[in-house]
Simulated assay, not measured.
Amino acid sequence: MPKQSVSSFHPLAKGFHWIVAVLVFAVWPLGAVIGFIKDDAKTSFYLWHESLGFLVLWLMLARLCVRFLKTPPPRPAMPAAQARLADTVQWALYIALIAMPISGFLATNAHGFPLQWFGLIPVWSPIGKSPDIAPVISVVHYWLSWTILTLVVLHVAGALYHRVIRRDDTLERML
């Protein structure tokens, strides 16, 4: 018997999802290794980490607009607790993936390094060099990085659970 077709997310939602996923898997490791890079190469790592992170911010804002403008497809039947967990992880990822680049942007500026997006476009900041708050914003940025990693692991585990264990169409909605 042929498998029924699955209603899926809007093509823009899918595109933003997968582009952000790829960028997160690039930005997170770039940020994680900066402390281990020789000083003469750090500037280049920071440039890419910050620029791609700032791109994630704009893509997430666009993705959020699509999310509010286009109704997502119905999810396959699942227990209420599982649906709440899925919603919680999804919305926590939205929040963290928006808060993370904002905190990084503000931390960099507070440390006295304004953003030059991809080395080309100067980006105005609401704060300048602020040594008093720079460490606090940096700590927020650091803990958001681990929060995002945890949420991504939960998100991928959920997708794999639905694909491998439940064998339902949850994953196909985003493919």
Rank of each mutant, 00 (worst) to 15 (best):
R84T: 12
L175Y: 08
I102M: 11
F25S: 07
R166Q: 13
L175A: 12
G35P: 11
P74C: 11
L12M: 10
P101C: 04
I127D: 06
A134E: 04
A77I: 14
H111T: 02
S125N: 01
K70L: 00
T150G: 15
A81C: 04
S145E: 09
A80R: 15
Q116C: 02
A26R: 03
Y46L: 14
F36G: 10
L97F: 09
V56D: 03
P74H: 14
G158S: 07
I133L: 09
P76Y: 11
S51L: 06
F9M: 08
T43Q: 14
W91K: 07
K42G: 06
V56G: 02
S138G: 15
A157F: 12
V56L: 02
L30S: 08
L120C: 03
H155K: 11
V22K: 00
R67S: 10
L93E: 03
I37G: 05
R173I: 11
M60W: 06
P135I: 06
L175R: 13
Q90R: 15
C65T: 14
A134P: 01
P114R: 08
D87H: 11
P101T: 04
L61H: 03
I34R: 11
E50D: 09
I148L: 14
W143L: 12
L64Y: 08
L120G: 00
F25E: 04
A107W: 05
W58I: 01
L61K: 04
L115S: 08
P135M: 08
T88Q: 07
I102K: 05
L47P: 01
K70W: 11
K129D: 07
L120I: 12
L47I: 01
K70E: 10
R63K: 09
I165E: 06
R163M: 12
L52T: 00
Q4T: 15
W58T: 00
H155P: 08
L55C: 04
Y46M: 13
K38H: 15
L23Q: 05
V33N: 03
H162G: 09
W48P: 03
V153R: 05
V20Q: 00
V89Y: 09
E50N: 03
L69A: 10
C65L: 14
F118S: 02
I98N: 02
P122Y: 02
F68Q: 05
K129P: 04
I19A: 08
R75F: 15
V66D: 05
K38F: 12
A159W: 04
A13Y: 08
P29E: 09
A107Y: 02
L151A: 10
M78P: 07
T147K: 10
F25P: 09
I133A: 02
L55T: 15
L171S: 07
S130P: 02
L69Y: 03
S5N: 13
W18N: 01
W28C: 02
